[in-house]
């Protein structure tokens, strides 16, 4: 994917900069971009180390198994082919739990662990499996119940009721998530019919 996205972004930026007369800005963006990548990576280091460590404790103590038992009905409904792969379902359940609680920072390391487990049962390791697509797409939609960051910012800018948007945000998130899963699943069916190149 990035083999297409990366050049498209770069070429489109260059052409737009010429059109809008912002080549100066574009030039400094090259260096600034590389620098902000380092900042982002540093943040990832602290996030993945901290939550990786804490979750390892939870895993060893059997907490993960407990959570995944609670989440099993929902997760098994979304990933019917993983019913027997308890090991994979556990990681997926933990990621969903962290997302729903609004712990975005903890959700990423858990999600990456789930991806590793999905990859271990993938038949072609170059291609995304059907379950990976559904799982990643779920993580690109917001699953949290309370939009904390947004509510805080609304408060800072003098909203009389920062939480007023909560029902709308919840409904929107829910239907966007349902759309994401549905489109991903339709795509899965379509591809598998076309050529049986990558099942699971």
């Amino acid at each position: 994917m990035m083999n297409y996205v990366f050049p498209i972004l770069l070429i489109f930026s260059f052409i737009s900069a010429i059109v809008t007369g912002r080549v100066d800005e574009l030039s400094s963006a090259v260096i600034d971009g590389a620098e902000s990548a380092v900042q982002l990576l540093l943040r990832l280091v602290s996030m993945l180390c901290l939550w990786g460590g804490i979750m390892e404790i939870g895993d060893r103590a059997g907490l993960t198994r407990l959570f995944s038992k609670v989440m099993y009905p929902v997760v098994a409904l979304i990933f019917p082919r993983l019913r027997k792969e308890k090991y994979v379902l556990e990681a997926i359940s933990m990621n969903i739990t962290a997302n729903v609680l609004g712990l975005g920072n903890a959700a990423t390391p858990l999600g990456l662990e789930a991806m590793r487990r999905l990859q271990s049962i993938n038949s072609d390791t170059e291609f995304a499996s059907d379950e990976m697509i559904v799982f990643v797409v779920m993580n690109t939609a917001a699953m949290h119940i309370i939009p904390t960051t947004v509510a805080t910012m609304r408060g800072q800018y003098g909203s009389e009721n920062p939480m007023e948007i909560m029902p709308a945000a919840f409904l929107t998130s829910f239907f966007a998530l349902a759309t994401a899963i549905t489109v991903a699943k339709i795509g899965n069916r379509f591809k598998r019919k076309g050529r049986r190149l990558y099942g699971r």
């Binding site: 990366f6 972004l9 930026s13 260059f14 912002r22 800005e25 963006a29 380092v38 982002l40």
Partner: peptide
């Protein structure tokens, strides 16, 4: 690194 550079360029290019 690749992604952030590309996105920063896109943002600054207008």
């Amino acid at each position: 690194t690749g992604l952030v550079v590309a996105v920063t360029m896109l943002k600054e290019s207008g």
